[in-house]
């Protein structure tokens, strides 16, 4: 059985966000591109499952909707341990377009498989692709997945709920929408992995025709915060006074 991991490519999370002069576009100059952090955790878990002999997972495929500029990041996923990659060759305008392209490709998938998607992307924070993909494929999804084990072919899922966690069983196929906890630390590619990644397959697929439902018309930065008021550590009690009488929140 294979695991298909939907992979988004995003600016490094420490990037200082800036926009073009007219605030219409994100300024990509000097930006380092990385695997979307949640997708990276999904990929890490998928590779761990492949390495575990207690289940039938034997292959990990990553799939990205993006232009050729995403390829170095896709190669990194292959270096970490994915076996194969697919890139659907279009720069998508919104989450729906990403999900639609993924579904057009995945609906023809014959082999039994699991689909993993990160819960959101760190750039546009849509938190939408996994759920949209499931609906487009006509399968169920489980969101807020913070743990996933597979025994044989049967998944056991841990879902975060308010104030706790549920253990679930879900009929396959389904889309697992994963978050923190599914894996702790993302993997760092080893030299051997980087060498092997060059030989692995990266299929480029033409996009299907569709139209985005939404479009970004402009950006703005938040108002700068007033400077922090410092209270002497010997007089820490003053903080409570300020919170009570100045901020009026206690």
């Amino acid at each position: 059985m294979k695991i298909i991991v939907c992979l988004g490519v995003v600016p490094d999370t420490t990037t200082k966000v800036k926009f073009s002069g007219d605030n219409k576009e994100f300024d990509t100059s000097g930006v380092q591109w990385v695997i979307n952090p949640w997708d990276e955790l999904a990929l890490t878990r998928a590779i761990q499952l492949k390495e575990d002999a207690g289940n039938t997972v034997d292959k990990v495929v990553v799939i990205t909707v993006g232009s050729i500029t995403t390829e170095p990041v896709i190669r990194k996923a292959l270096a970490i341990g994915a076996d194969e990659a697919v890139r659907i060759d279009v720069a998508p305008k919104d989450s729906y377009e990403v999900a639609f392209q993924l579904s057009e490709f995945l609906k023809n998938e014959q082999d039994q498989h699991f689909v993993f998607a990160g819960i959101e992307s760190s750039d546009y924070n849509g938190a939408a692709v996994g759920g949209m993909l499931a609906e487009l494929l006509g399968v169920n999804s489980v969101s807020s997945v913070s743990g996933l084990e597979i025994e044989g072919e049967k998944p056991r899922i841990f879902r975060d709920i308010d104030g706790g966690v549920e253990t679930l069983e879900v009929d396959i196929p389904f889309v697992a929408i994963v978050q923190k906890g599914i894996a702790i630390e993302p993997r760092i590619p080893a030299m051997r992995g980087i060498m092997m990644a060059r030989k692995k397959t990266l299929n480029v697929i033409p996009p299907a025709g569709t139209e985005a439902y939404t479009g970004i018309t402009g950006f703005e930065l938040p108002e700068p915060k007033p400077p922090c008021k410092i209270i002497e550590s010997e007089n820490a009690k003053e903080l409570i006074n300020l919170l009570q009488n100045e901020a009026k929140i206690l």
């Binding site: 919104d94 989450s95 729906y96 999900a99 819960i119 959101e120 924070n125 849509g126 938190a127 939408a128 692709v129 996994g130 759920g131 949209m132 499931a134 609906e135 487009l136 999804s141 489980v142 969101s143 807020s144 975060d160 709920i161 308010d162 929408i177 439902y213 939404t214």
Partner: peptide
């Protein structure tokens, strides 16, 4: 709401109702 449940359901609703989704 833009919380666990909203994130779980809004995308499916968007597809099912052919409705554009804006989250957060």
């Amino acid at each position: 709401s833009h919380d666990n449940t909203g994130k779980a359901l809004a995308p499916g609703l968007s597809v099912k109702l052919k409705a554009g989704l804006v989250s957060g």
